[in-house]
């Protein structure tokens, strides 16, 4: 029985489909990001809105990019802060 369980898990950890899935996931992040700079633009606009509720930022200096290494893709935002609003206790919605 134990032998069966060990083999069962071994087989699954060795299964090539997990590798395929992970490679596909990464390649599609790259593909889709390349295809749609508009998407980043929309995201940028939304970010500005949300962040501005708490912090005064320099909108023109805002940079949002997808940074990719082989292993992963990260959303990187560089947001110049002008002023932090004082004493925000409850976020107004």
């Amino acid at each position: 029985m134990l032998d069966f369980i060990v083999r069962f898990f071994q087989r699954h950890s060795l299964g090539s489909k997990e590798v395929a899935k992970e490679r596909l996931r990464l390649v599609l992040v790259h593909d889709r990001a390349n295809v749609s700079p508009e998407l980043l633009e929309l995201l940028k606009n939304d970010l500005v809105q949300v962040i501005s509720k708490y912090i005064e930022i320099d909108e023109r200096g805002l940079e949002v990019t997808l940074d990719s290494s082989e292993e992963m893709v990260a959303l990187v935002a560089s947001i110049p802060v002008r002023r932090v609003k004082r004493a925000v206790k409850v976020a107004s919605v």
């Binding site: 087989r11 699954h12 060795l14 299964g15 090539s16 489909k17 997990e18 395929a20 899935k21 596909l24 996931r25 599609l28």
Partner: peptide, 15 residues
């Protein structure tokens, strides 16, 4: 698919 060597229907739809 059963052997873990082919993506499942669910995998593909999810992606």
């Amino acid at each position: 698919v059963r052997q873990g060597d082919m993506m499942t229907i669910e995998d593909i739809i999810e992606i």
